[in-house]
Design a protein around this nucleic acid. Structure first.
Lengths: 212, 212
DNA sequence: CCGCGATGTATCGGACCGATACATCGCACG
DNA sequence: CGTGCGATGTATCGGTCCGATACATCGCGG
């Protein structure tokens, strides 16, 4: 999951670890607290070893002097490689079971702007199915095993059930939107068109006109 | 977290691993998928080594014969020890930062029936505080950094924000209930305004409805 | 009689986290 | 003037938990 997220972010621009963590936190803030450095740095290492990312020269301009005064332990900027982009495309398109759990779905969703419509639909429907299953499980417990559980546990289940129902409704809306061809949900207010300055091939959805 | 959950469940009755997993899934179904055996068995081992739990004799009655025919590889039933109960009480009362994350809070909440009121209140308020912080973070992103993010990411944040607001409201209700002395929430459809706080005397010391 | 799904115990590699360490830089406060 | 403190920045270590896998037993229907 972290791998996918890093690859996705580095496609927008090169970054060093600290920055990456901040962007990750901003982008995934809705689904997970904050990436730990204990995960981030080892993963960066792994991705570099695999050839999916590479170190970029730090500040190629105006880097004349500044010698190895204090042995230079500055920031390390990474950029994605061509192989990395392929890897990302592969990871984003293939859906395993982990694609539908809370974290996995969130990460995939966060990169829907780089995902083709068919895949988006597949993922949304898979997620819906999974949540529906969880919902049924909760209903079962609340129905059949209610008297075996104390009031607090019951209340927890009830709250969880409500969250499931709510998410299913949300997903339904997204799916309907997706099928109708329009990109994201677009609530009410006139959301100004965002600036898109990707340094990569034309991202799929996202813009207004899309060919089915 | 797993440790706390196991200790809590074994206080209701002795169980073997498989059973434990099922009960765990029923009790915590609202917050996590299902405990993996890859966590469960090592943890049982650890708890046993620490002396918190012990193997119970399987079927003490009618266990006359049945010798080591197939070398005996049957189910292993565990029961909690006196030290285990102390450990549970300690874990349930002390609140670290992990007490307020999604999983940690859920597990604590699931055992509120075995938690004293002051601790319940402390945990509910800590959780609320944490969710409020997350909510503020999301509002920030949606406000300030909105134009830097694509519509899908924005929609994710929006959905997350709504979930936060919803949970805060839920927690408020629980806290109010807790303060008023009554135990759990008791939804009761139609009693939207039923916030009676007639200063009724601090009631029952949380009667347990467990089965011996 | 055979397979198959439920029950049941167990291990292994890997992902991720939390704590910790350490170094630099700007700047506010004494 | 300096001194400490918070943000920036890289990195490791131990531990928890997960997913895949293996294997054995039992009851039941075909």
């Amino acid at each position: 999951m972290l791998e996918l997220a890093i690859l996705g972010l580095l496609q927008e621009s090169p970054m060093h670890g600290y920055e990456l963590r901040k962007e990750l936190t901003a982008k995934l803030g809705a689904i997970r607290a904050a990436i730990s450095y204990g995960s981030l740095y080892p993963t960066l290492r792994r991705l570099q070893a695999a050839g999916w990312i590479a170190e970029a020269a730090e500040t190629p301009a105006t880097a004349e002097e500044v010698p190895a005064l204090t042995s230079r332990r500055g920031r390390v900027v990474y950029k994605i490689t061509a192989e990395g982009k392929e890897r990302f495309a592969q990871l984003i398109a293939q859906a395993g079971p982990e694609t539908y759990d809370d974290t996995g779905f969130g990460v995939h969703f966060a990169f829907f702007a780089r995902t083709d419509q068919a895949t988006r639909l597949r993922i949304l429907e898979g997620r819906r199915r999974k949540i529906e299953e969880r919902r049924e499980g909760l209903r079962d417990v609340l129905g059949r095993a209610a008297e075996r559980l104390d009031a607090y546990t019951l209340e927890l289940q009830r709250h969880g059930l409500e969250a499931c129902e709510r998410e299913v409704r949300w997903l339904e809306e997204l799916i309907a939107n997706e099928r109708s061809g329009r990109a994201p949900t677009v609530p009410q207010p006139g959301t100004a068109g965002g600036r898109r300055e990707d340094t990569s091939p034309p991202p799929p959805g996202e813009s207004r006109k899309e060919r089915p």
